[in-house]
Design a protein around this nucleic acid. Structure first.
Length: 456
RNA sequence: GCCGGGGUGCCCUAGCCAGGAAGGGGGCUGGCCUGGAGAGCCAGUGGCCCAUCGGGCCGCGAGGGUUCAAAUCCCUCCCCCGGCGCCA
């Protein structure tokens, strides 16, 4: 049983180097890891021989005569010293090798576009009829170049989601939240609260209909398990730590939902395993100063409905396509125009072998912006957490996949811009009606401006 | 948080007090047997290394220590069960 990256290292290091080059990462580590691995194997072989000899002697001691015994103990002690020495070497070699191995990203899939950053992401399809203000026509043509996307020109300027929320509808307040908690936090009020809840229920409803098991996971995790599900870079930049405890706030329910099967072995008939997680997500957003500072597009805390699949290795690419389609169905029903982009290798996280983003059209920004991420992590997470598949005695690592179904704050942003009318009223997508109907105080068709709730 | 009892391979369990190659049962897989099935019998059923056959090393919740030798003794930590305390 082997991890695809480790197997490539030993049998076909060029494949691994190619993959790293595509990600614009150094390939030096591959040669270093190879050298460490071969030295480790040599040392382990020698260590095993020494231990074998020592064990033989130790087994003879209880049956030996008193005078033989002293001699045997002496020899065992001598061997023991050598064993200890070699154990130290083996430990150092394997630790250094494993540090490198654990830093290596998944081998990128052949269908992943080449390129160093997000400007090389490749749109694969568009859906919906975007509303394009005249002032954003040029931007729109850039964003859709190469595709024949039907669109409608509007002759008024939609408000950006932040102004719409706080100045027009007056049902959100990020200033007060900044005072209380800091930047990138928010208070949401009244209709937006109902909208948020309805979005969660709608997404949960849609995904569970497809056989996914709903899960409410722990919102904090230990470091050991955290490092099994994500790379160090993400860990440092995104994850909040609880002071004085070995606990971290989850950045997505993907993390506890994958750690949930750490150490488990599935049989073939137990796969695929489908889960849909619902949880708040906490993110430090370190290194994003100045980006999306207004409104609730990029915040430290939001609710997300997340699809998770544990699959047989040979079925994971099919599941990757299905997961993004599930997310598309949600945004089609919410009547939000979007495009799907294939993320360039240089912009890909370490766990993922391939990633699709669903980007919604934002009329006021004149841009497509990320709402959904859909990744195939192949055996990257399952290797670290030892999540196995038992094929009649032969063991393999399962593949893990994750995809947003719906993240509330960003979806609210997209609704505020796409379903905004010239008079400032926001039309609620019809599909949400059933999730608002039972509640007397909930809005049903539209969200209208109200008087400011907090002091001016 | 305190007191007590536990954690042994996929599951259950013996071994721990009193240190000396982890034993039994179940499940699963394969083989023998059978017209076929069942029963019965045999073998396999954690990770790693060398290797042609095969052999070896590690592994008893995790990490240290004592010892020629640790599932077994000592220390720290994690988790589960019971009791007390606290609590939405």
């Amino acid at each position: 049983m082997s991890w695809s990256v480790l197997e490539a290292l030993r049998t076909n290091p060029d494949v691994l180097k190619e993959s790293l080059k595509k990600r614009y990462l150094s390939t030096d580590l591959v040669d270093r890891a190879l050298e460490l691995d071969s030295r480790w194997r040599e040392a382990v072989t020698e260590l095993n021989r020494l231990r074998e000899r020592r064990n033989e002697i130790n087994r003879a001691i209880p049956h030996a005569s008193p005078e033989e015994r002293q001699e045997l103990i002496k020899r065992s002690k001598e061997l023991g010293a050598k064993v200890k020495e070699l154990e130290e070497l083996v430990k150092n070699l394997s630790e250094e090798r494993d540090t490198i191995l654990m830093s290596l990203p998944s081998i990128v899939h052949e269908s992943v576009p080449e390129g160093p950053d997000d400007t090389y992401n490749v749109p694969v399809r568009f859906w919906g009829i975007p509303k394009v203000p005249k002032s954003k026509l040029e931007r729109f043509r850039e964003e859709t170049s190469g595709f024949d996307v039907e669109y409608r020109v509007v002759d008024w300027e939609p408000k950006g989601h932040a102004d719409e929320l706080e100045l027009v509808l007056k049902q959100g307040d990020t200033l007060k939240a900044a005072q209380v908690s800091g930047s990138r936090f928010f208070y949401l009020f009244k209709d937006i609260v109902w909208l948020e809840q309805a979005l969660v229920m709608f997404a949960l409803d849609h995904i569970t209909k497809k056989g996914f098991i709903p899960v409410l996971p722990p919102y904090m995790m230990r470091e050991q398990y955290y490092l099994g599900v994500t790379d160090l870079e993400t860990f440092k930049d995104s994850i909040y730590k609880i002071e004085g405890e070995d606990l971290y706030l989850i950045a997505t329910s993907e993390h506890p939902l994958i750690a949930m099967h750490a150490g488990d072995t599935f049989t073939e008939d137990e796969l695929p395993r489908l889960y849909v997680g619902v949880s708040p997500c906490f993110r430090k957003e370190a290194g994003t100063h100045g980006k999306d500072t207004k409104g609730i597009f990029r915040v430290h805390q939001f609710t997300k409905v997340e699809q998770i699949v544990y699959s047989k290795p040979e079925e994971s690419w099919e599941w990757h396509e299905r997961l993004i389609r599930n997310a598309e169905e949600i945004y089609q029903q919410l009547e939000i125009p979007y495009r799907i982009v294939n993320i360039a290798a240089g912009d890909l996280g370490a766990c993922a072998a391939k990633k699709y983003d669903l980007e919604a059209w934002f009329p006021a920004q004149g841009r497509y912006r990320e709402l959904v991420s859909c990744s195939n992590c192949v055996d990257w997470q399952s290797y670290r957490l030892r999540i196995k598949l038992d094929r009649k005695g032969r063991r393999e690592f399962v593949h893990t996949l994750n995809s947003t179904a719906l993240a509330t704050t960003r979806t609210i942003c997209a609704i505020l811009e796409n379903h905004q009318r010239e008079d400032g009223v926001v039309e609620i997508p019809k599909v949400l009606r059933g999730y608002l109907e039972p509640f007397e105080a909930a809005p049903k068709e539209v969200i209208e401006p109200i008087k400011r709730l907090l002091k001016e």
